[in-house]
Every structure is written in structure tokens, then in C-alpha cells.
Computed example of a mutant assay.
Amino acid sequence: MPKLIAKTPLSGLWPVTHRDLSLSEVALDRITSVAPFRGQEKALAKALKPLGLAFLAPNSFAEKAGVRLVWTGRDQAFLINAVLETPAAALTDQSDGWACLRLEGAGAADVLMRLYPLDLRAQVFAPGQAARAGLNHMASVLMRTETAFELLVFRSMARTAWAEIAEAMQHVAARRAL
């Protein structure tokens, strides 16, 4: 009987580099959708406290010791790289449904502004901010860290997202070379 081998959504694709821009995959251990039940916000806050996190304001994310909580919509967030057990929220495992891409380097915002209908300049979209927005025709969650942008896209669209970002990187790098 053949053995199945777990692969990341973008396995086999090497990081793409154009000038000082780099696109790579981030392998995430676990993604859990967290949606507090009505009136259970305090109980959820108590459950998140041992992780060093609190439920978020819209368009933001928080990270502590490799665990991240990302706002993904009204009364909803993704908990990344941690396990949470609480009766205060609807918890849904999303681990196999998403891929994470990381774009870093000078000009990363310029690349992504070709694909997102958002102003991603640092003074507008600062580190710690997140947005649920369309990456061209694909649903995504965009986060700005201190040094990069990280994007969550549906696993089924990961290679398409990769190709579109790589192409936009090429265009930005060519423009900067002029």
C-alpha cells in the first residue's frame, strides 16, 4: 500500500528573489478559527490569557512566543500555532485549508499594492495591522510584521497567488533597475 507524504501547499517551489525582494512559504503548524459565542467574550479572554493574547480589534494581529491571533472578520480570528480549548467560542480547525506566503524586502509594499486595493505604505498600514482583502481574485488575510508581509490564502489558490506575486515582484524589480 502506498504511503501518503504530507506536503506543504507550495512544496517544490523555491523561494523567489528579485533584487532585494524575497518570496517564501511559511509552514504553519495549526490554524484554528475562533468565534466567541454571544456573551462569552470575558470567558474567551480568560482562555486566551495563558497564551499572552487577547481578542483583537478589527484589522490587527498580535503575536507572543510564536503564537499569533489574527483578526479575520467581525467576531472572528485565526489562532495560529497554538491549541485552545474553551466552551466560550466556536473553534474550527482550518489548518489544511490555508497557505502562508511571506514577502520581504524593500519594495514589498509596492509589489503588493499592484495586487491589493489597499494603501500598504508603512505610514498607513503599519506593523501589527491585518486586513481581510482580495488578492486580485483570491480571498486572503494580509498581515504586516516588523520586517515583511505575510499572506494567508486558500490552499487551493496558493500556487496562483505565488505566481501573481512573483510576477509583480519581477515588474517592480525591473522598474527599479531603470
Rank of each mutant, 00 (worst) to 15 (best):
A90E: 14
A90L: 14
L91M: 04
L91Y: 06
T92A: 14
D93P: 05
Q94I: 11
Q94C: 12
Q94R: 13
S95C: 10
S95Q: 10
S95M: 09
G97C: 07
W98M: 13
A99S: 14
A99C: 13
C100K: 05
C100S: 12
L101E: 04
L101I: 15
R102M: 14
R102E: 14
R102D: 12
R102H: 10
R102Y: 06
L103D: 00
E104W: 02
G105L: 04
G105W: 11
G105E: 03
A106G: 05
A106L: 05
G107M: 10
A108Y: 10
A109E: 15
A109C: 06
D110E: 15
V111D: 03
L112C: 08
M113P: 05
M113T: 12
R114D: 12
R114W: 04
R114M: 08
L115A: 13
L115Y: 11
Y116K: 06
L118H: 04
D119K: 00
D119G: 04
D119N: 15
R121Y: 02
R121A: 14
A122L: 14
A122D: 08
A122E: 15
Q123W: 01
Q123L: 07
Q123G: 02
Q123S: 14
V124T: 12
F125A: 03
F125W: 01
F125M: 01
A126D: 06
A126G: 02
A126P: 00
P127Y: 08
G128V: 03
G128Y: 07
Q129G: 03
Q129C: 12
Q129R: 09
A130N: 01
A130G: 02
A131D: 00
R132F: 12
A133Y: 07
A133R: 03
G134H: 13
G134R: 04
N136L: 13
N136I: 09
H137F: 13
M138D: 11
A139L: 05
A139Q: 11
A139V: 10
A139S: 09
S140I: 02
S140A: 15
S140E: 12
S140Q: 13
V141I: 12
V141G: 01
L142V: 09
T145I: 00
T145L: 15
E146P: 05
E146N: 12
E146V: 04
E146Q: 15
T147K: 11
T147D: 12
T147G: 03
T147F: 01
T147I: 06
T147Y: 00
F149Q: 09
E150I: 09
E150L: 09
E150R: 12
